[in-house]
């Protein structure tokens, strides 16, 4: 699945819920099912700043695609970062850099994009795109 398809899939899943509580219950489920990051990545180096809860994101390049892993000490934050991982992970760097993130708005989590939410969703996206930029440069260098 490419970035667009994954995002569409998430929008479809969330369209099943009418009220906020079901949405958050689903987010909590997704938080619990997040493939956890290795303990060695739970250091300040991988910590995303600007979050009320702590969030760690690691990335590596596997066969030209970026594989993200993440963890957080808050479950809702884990659910949110899991959404991002479903969209971004195993994608080529370029697709991550260009990804359209309107799906967050579409599933009714737009409020989490506000800087005052301090859950750091904006910082997470920024950090993941930054990783993609670095890997893109790396790939280019290798190609050259």
């Amino acid at each position: 699945m490419n970035v667009e398809d994954s995002a569409a899939q998430i929008v479809k899943e969330f369209s099943l819920f009418d009220d906020w509580m079901d949405k958050y219950n689903y987010l909590i489920e997704m938080g619990k099912s997040l493939p956890l990051i290795d303990e060695k990545y739970k250091t300040d180096q991988y910590l995303i700043s600007g979050c009320q809860s702590r969030v760690w994101v690691s990335a590596e390049l596997v066969d030209g695609k970026v594989v993200f892993k993440a963890d957080s000490d808050a479950v809702i934050t884990k659910g949110i970062v899991n959404l991002l991982i479903r969209v971004f992970s195993n994608q080529p760097p370029e697709d991550i850099i260009d990804a359209d993130l309107s799906f967050i708005d579409e599933i009714g989590l737009k409020e989490h994009l506000s800087p005052t939410r301090s859950n750091g969703l904006v910082s997470m996206i920024k950090q993941m795109k930054l990783y993609a930029v670095v890997f893109k440069t790396k790939l280019k260098d290798q190609g050259a």
């Binding site: 906020w20 509580m21 958050y24 909590i28 009320q52 809860s53 000490d73 808050a74 479950v75 809702i76 934050t77 859950n119």
Partner: peptide, 13 residues
């Protein structure tokens, strides 16, 4: 052991 951020997000709702 619920993180305050998780609790606050739901209480807000």
């Amino acid at each position: 052991d619920i993180h305050p951020y998780d609790a606050g997000t739901i209480i807000d709702k």
